[in-house]
C-alpha cells in the first residue's frame, strides 16, 4: 500500500494584514505551519498505516519554496516514511489548476500510489479545489469532505460531511480523498521524532524531474490571476432602528427571516 498525502505550508495564523499603502500581504513575522486540515490528512494516512496488515508507505508531498521543507519535516516527525518537495522557480504563481497538475505529475512519478489524501482546503486560500484537481489529473475517483474513512481490500468507503447531511460513498482504489477536521485528532510528534526528522534527507524534485509541461505549471499554467487584494471593511456600528415598536419589530423580523432563510436552504 502506498499513500501520498498532499500538504501545504501556510501562515501559522489567518490573522494576516494588508499594507494599506501597497495592498501587499504583510508576511513578516508570521510563522509557518502545516495547513491544519492537511494534518488531519496525515493522521488519516498514518492511521491506515498503523492498522494495515502488510507493508504500507506514507509519503508527504508538497509544492513550494525551499522553506516549505519545514512542513515536510513536520510530516516526517509525525511518522511519514518519506517526503518530497516540489520546488522550482517555474512553479511560482501557480493557481489551483496548475498546482493540482503539478502534484498529479509528482504522484505519477512516485508511481503505484493507491491512495492520495488531502485536507479539504488550505486555511490561507480556502479554495478546496486542489484535491479534486489532483483526482481529475490522475483520472481517479474523488471523495471530498470525508469525516470517516475505511479501507477493505481495494475498496474505499467514506462518509462525507455535507451541509446538513452525510453521504456514505464507496469507490475503488486508486482514489483521492479529502478530509475534514472532524475526521480525527492529529497526533503530535514527540521531540525525539522532531529531532530525527531534522536530520532526514528530503527529496527535491524540479519541473523536469516530474516531466511537467511548462505550459501547465506556475503562472503560465494558471488561468486565474489575482487582480488585487484588499482589507475587508472592519466591523462598525450599523443601522439603528428607532420608533414605534410595531414598525421596529416588523423591520427586525424582515431582517431576521432573510438571514434565517439563507441558513435553512444552505
Amino acid at each position: 500500500m502506498k499513500i501520498v498525502v498532499c500538504i501545504k505550508q501556510v501562515p501559522a495564523t489567518t490573522n494576516v494584514r494588508i499594507d494599506p499603502e501597497t495592498n501587499a500581504l504583510i508576511r513578516e513575522g508570521v510563522e509557518s505551519q502545516v495547513n491544519p486540515f492537511d494534518e488531519n490528512a496525515l493522521e488519516a494516512a498514518l492511521q491506515v498505516k498503523d492498522g494495515y496488515d502488510g507493508e504500507c508507505q506514507v509519503i508527504a508531498l508538497t509544492m513550494g519554496p525551499p522553506q516549505a521543507e519545514a512542513a515536510l519535516r513536520d510530516a516526517v516527525a509525525m511518522g511519514c516514511d518519506d517526503a518530497i518537495l516540489l520546488t522550482d522557480g517555474a512553479f511560482r504563481g501557480a493557481d489551483t489548476l496548475a498546482t493540482s497538475y503539478t502534484l498529479a505529475q509528482a504522484i505519477r512519478r512516485i508511481g503505484d500510489v493507491d491512495l492520495v489524501l488531502c485536507g479539504k482546503q488550505a486555511i490561507d486560500g480556502d479554495t478546496a479545489q486542489v484535491g479534486p484537481g489532483v483526482a481529475e489529473h490522475l483520472g481517479v475517483p474523488q471523495i471530498t469532505f470525508a469525516i470517516e474513512l475505511s479501507l477493505e481490500g481495494r475498496k474505499i468507503t467514506a462518509k462525507r460531511m455535507l451541509e446538513d447531511s452525510f453521504e456514505v460513498v464507496e469507490c475503488r482504489m486508486p482514489a483521492v480523498v479529502t478530509v475534514v477536521k472532524q475526521i480525527n485528532d492529529p497526533r503530535r510528534a514527540s521531540m525525539k521524532n522532531v529531532l530525527k526528522a531534522r536530520k532526514r534527507e528530503i527529496t527535491r524534485w524540479t519541473a523536469e524531474d516530474i516531466d511537467a509541461d511548462p505550459d501547465r505549471i506556475g503562472f503560465q499554467g494558471s488561468p486565474t490571476v489575482v487582480w488585487k487584494v484588499f482589507a475587508p471593511e472592519g466591523r462598525k456600528g450599523g443601522r439603528k432602528l428607532e420608533g414605534e415598536v410595531g414598525d421596529v419589530v416588523h423591520a427586525l423580523a424582515d431582517e431576521i427571516l432573510e438571514i434565517r432563510k439563507g441558513l435553512s436552504t444552505a
Binding site: Q33, A77, R188, A189, M191, V194, L195, R198
Partner: peptide
Amino acid sequence: SEDQQAVLDAVREFC
C-alpha cells in the same frame, strides 16, 4: 540552534 528551535516551535504549538 536549529534543533533547539525545532523543539521550541513544537513545544510552543503544544502549549
